[in-house]
Each structure stands twice: as structure tokens, then as C-alpha cells.
Write a protein that binds this DNA or RNA. Sequence first.
DNA 1: TATACACACTCTAACGTTTTCGTGTTGATA
DNA 2: TATCAACACGAAAACGTTAGAGTGTGTATA
Lengths: 338, 338
Amino acid sequence: MKRKITLKDIAKELDVSISTVSKALKNSNEIGFDTREKVQAFAKLYNYKPNNIAVSLQNSRTKHIALFIPEIVHDFFTTVLKGVEEVAHKNGYNVLVCVSNESFEKEVLSMEMFARGGIVDGFIISLSKETQLKEDYNHLIEIENQGMPLVMIDRITDKVISDKVIVDDMRGSYTAISHLINQGRKRIALITTEDYISVGSLRKKGYKKALADHDIELDERLILTINNIEDSDKAIEKFIRETTFDAVMGVNDVFAVVAMKALQNQGKKIPEDVAIIGFSDGKLLKYAAPTISAVNQHGDEMGKAAAQMLIDRLESDKEAENYKTTVITTTLIEREST
Amino acid sequence: MKRKITLKDIAKELDVSISTVSKALKNSNEIGFDTREKVQAFAKLYNYKPNNIAVSLQNSRTKHIALFIPEIVHDFFTTVLKGVEEVAHKNGYNVLVCVSNESFEKEVLSMEMFARGGIVDGFIISLSKETQLKEDYNHLIEIENQGMPLVMIDRITDKVISDKVIVDDMRGSYTAISHLINQGRKRIALITTEDYISVGSLRKKGYKKALADHDIELDERLILTINNIEDSDKAIEKFIRETTFDAVMGVNDVFAVVAMKALQNQGKKIPEDVAIIGFSDGKLLKYAAPTISAVNQHGDEMGKAAAQMLIDRLESDKEAENYKTTVITTTLIEREST
DNA sequence: TATACACACTCTAACGTTTTCGTGTTGATA
DNA sequence: TATCAACACGAAAACGTTAGAGTGTGTATA
């Protein structure tokens, strides 16, 4: 185990004090030119890198940020992570990933440990389902009280005041449904999640508004609410067997593709008999046969925006409370299914 | 900004020394029972959590591990991350994610900074393509020389001696091809990556061995090597137009699904005319129409195994060099395409 | 009554930095 | 020759913790 070289080592070797070395490496003009040169050359030669932990202890900044996501095996959150990682690294920050697995408890526990332990400087979080269901946001409020920056993304709550990055879910949904209507679809079904999930409910709102604005009467029977993700496949199949419509939107990629398969099994032609649209940043809809139109949420953009907001907050010393909410605009990707 | 409570605060408040508090919290019987009780109660009341940075500085262990992956928007690596995160958290470790984006430079730079800066205690890495192409592994060797544990996964090299977790790529491929042969397929195509990618070349080996063992003559024209991932779609379509076969295996999920679509466009029936099989842990093949058989690599198992190996190494004090290579067995998931 | 020793603490150094303040040496100025 | 900056550097405290080495009691042993 080769011990790492420290300021002390350099100091001893060059017969100067530790502070001189420290200053010389920072090119402080408090130190003579010759000494600076000498120290820097030596440090370079021995590949000296300051011990981050010591630096952190000194200025109580770790240069780490935490990203909490409910689920990692999910195209959207994956792209978010990619975006966060990119701008974090560009700014010299590292990303600690915590997957809550939709569990309130894990979210709370990890968050508290990260915060009180001084492990990270700030948080980016997308709420777990359980948290949204319980509506218990004390851990987030506690974070804020401690003065740690927090950026909420995608699955947010307005019970907590903080920076936020969201997608224009309602608008995305509205646009998608309008697109279907403009193509002459009359009976448009929606496969969605339960209302407590913020994005799901917003998408439903967009759906309803689009119908209303185009004078199509809302038929609640055309809305399928999945309450148990485990057997969503069966629920969707049953729904499709028992309901007739000429278009359907799923609030994610799996719902859309499962619906398509069920329809195809029924002998329906896509898009002739039924048009399909989903929400997704991933490959599932892109490579389906036929390819399925999608509302793209631009997870990477969200990640980038969130990371940038967080870092800005961290680097600015002002206590300012001008919290911002950035809205990422979705784009409709038209494919064969519509 | 509420300052965090420290040992010193507790000590002052309770009029004892800092060390007494420290020991009391650790339930050291060097401290009287009453004092212990008092300190612990107080700490609990004020929700004291030790400052991790100070602890890290003290024992030069950060309880952080780094996971280097070439690409995050990729089902396999996503499941790996999930596995790593799970066992890391279970053992009190945090995961720093670094996405190399297949870039040698980013891999090297990040790695050096993580190592010399004392940011993490150990590494789990899957090599970037560029690294595998260059065959320059000095950064990894350097890590090992520093005495930092390193676990290589999936995309590995035997130029570096370390713990490893791999999948039985060759065997997985062999089994898949044998499965096709047993179904009576005679002309089996392979869509693969260039040889410098370790897993791709192993899968090709398995393919060849399976053919040989079943007395099927190898026809090099049935092997398509994708050298530019950007226009793999076109390359695959061209290949399918110009080549005839009754089965095809893709070394990943996209190759398989693109091949299927191209075949279907040609009017081929799956699996009647052509059987298809891919490598994947994700949803793409599962939700394709028809569903596509897959060699499942169990990324989560790999992640778990790798994290466990790394942590074992970190927690054991012995300098032992009995490096192990864990092989995760792939499983063949038979679906409609075969 | 001297000795030993367990007990319950406190002191101190250490981890590797950064930064403020202090200090000895120059060379220039009055 | 006394005075005073400017210069180049060192000493020390601080960040929050841990752990080994003291220290001062009180009680049991010889």
C-alpha cells in the first residue's frame, strides 16, 4: 500500500514549512518565485493531489451531490442521471446515486444520513411513490431548514418550497391528445396511474383539457387507472377487450406497448384501427413494430437543468430565496403508430 | 443555515470532555453508565450524527465506492448499477457513479482524481471501448499499486490482475446457438461488434464453438461485424437483404430487434422463417412483437457480486492477493422468436 | 498503613488541509 | 545610523473526530 504523498512530505523533503508548500501550490505571491517553482515541480513529479477529505473538512464542502431517484431501471430516470452526471462532472462535482425503490423509508433514512453526516452539499430528488402517497415531506423540509440546497425534479410537491425542474406534463399530454384528435380520432382512451403520482395526474388533466377544448365529451370509461403495477399487463388486456376506442395514450412506454400488443392480438391494425401514443425517452417505443409515437420528456435536459440549478445555488453565497421552477418542454415524436 | 451539532457542542453542554462524549456514544465501558445514558439521550434529542468527513479523515476510509460504466442509458449497465447500489447501501457504503461515455480520457482522468484525492475507497469498473481498443491499462495498474481495491466487471482485460466478475459470455452464446441448432436451424447468422470488445469476441467464440460441436460448417459471410454503432441499423438492413439464413443472434438487444424488423419488412415470419435471439436484461426484447428470446446476463447479480467482492476486500485487512474471478451464469429466456 | 488497582474521566496527538497572524531578513529612505 | 516597508516564509489554530496515554479518585488487598 503506497501511502499517498502529503503537503507534509513535500515540506520535509524541500525543507520548508507546510504552509509554504500549501501557498506555493496555490501560486500565492506571498511565496518567492523560486520556491514556488521548486515546490510545484516537486509536486508534479510526485503526482501530488490534495486530499479531498481534508479540504472538505476545512471548508465543509464535499463537492458531492446526491441524486435520489425512485427507480433506476427506467429509461427516463436513466437519462436524468446521465444529464446530472454530465454537468456535475463538468463543474467538479461528483454524483452519489440513491435509488429509493419507491420506498418512503429508504428515501428518508438515506436523506437524513446524507444530510447530517455532511456527505453531500446538496440534493436532487424525484419523489418515491410512497412519499407522494403519504404526503409526508418532513425530511425535505428538514433539509431546507439545515440550509442545504434541494432541487426537486419530475415527481414533485408544492408542499415543499424549493427549486424545481419539471416537464410540462399537462401540455405534453394536451399536445399528444390534440394530435390524435386532429387526425380524426374521436374515442381516445387513456391508461394512467393513480392520481397521487403528480405526473400521472397532470397528464390526465392535459388529456381532459384537450378533449374539452375540442368539444369531445369525456367518457370516464375510457380511462384505465392502473393501481397495481405488477399485473398491469392483465389489467390492460382486460380493458382492451371490454372497451372500444380509436386511439389510446399510455402515460409511460410500457403501458403503450402492452396496449398495442393486446390490440394487435385482437386483430386491430395500428394505426389504421387504433392510434397509439406513449410517454418515453427510451428505446421501447422507438423499436416497437410499428414504431410508437411518443411524448419525449427529455430526461437528460431535466438532469442537466437540475444539476446546474443546484450548483448555482451552491456556488452563490447569497441566502436568496428566489426559488425557481424550470419547465422543460416536451416534444412530440411522431412515429408510425399515429 | 442551522449549524450542525458536534461532539464539542454536546461536551460543552454536558460539561464533560469531547473524548468522553465520543466514547459514551460508542458505548465504551471506559465511561460510567450514568454518563453514557446522559450523553446518548442528549445526542438523540438533538439528533446528533457524526460528521463523516472528520471520521473519514481520521481513519482514511470514506465509505464511498466508485462505479465506472461506459454508458448509462443501457439496460445492462443500469441493472448493474442497481445491484451495486443495493449491496453497497446494505453495507453502509455509498456509490459514486462515473459514466465514461466510452472515453479513455474521461476514464483515466476521473479515476486518477478519485484515487489520489482519496474520494473513494475502491473501484468497480467496466472498461470503455476506447480503453479496450488502446489496450492502455496503466491507470488501473496504478490504482492497484496504490493498494486500492479494484473489481473489474463485464468488459475486462487479463492484462490487469484484480478481482473480476464476468458473465459466461461464451457459454451463454454457445447455449443460445445450440438451442437454435436443436430446433433444426442450419444457417445461423451472428450480428456482433468488433473483436476488441471483450464480450463481443467471447460471444463470437461461443457461436463458433457451438457450430463446430454440431458439425455445422462456419460460413464467415453469416457474421456481420458492426463497426460504427451510429449506422448499425442500415448495416443490419443491408446484411439482411443480401444474406439468407434461418436464424440470427444479436450480441445485444438493439441488434436483435432491428434485425427482426428488417426481416419482417422483407415479409419473413418470425419464428417460422427465421428465429431470433438477443442478449439483454431489459424490456426491449420482452415487449417486442413477437417477443424475442434472450440470453439474460443478470446485470443485477453482477453488480451485487462485484460490490460484495469489493467490500469484502475493503473490510479484510489482509494484504492477500488471492484474486478471484466470479462467473455469473447467463440464462436463456425462451420467447416467441425461437 | 502502604500498595495496588479498577474506575471514570481528561489530555493530547493525529488525520491533511487552509488561512491568519507573526517574524526575521532585506534594501531603501531620512 | 535609525526607521520602515516590502518580502518571504513559519507558527499555529481550526475543521470534527478517534484512540492511546495519562490522572485523580476511591476501594480492596497484604
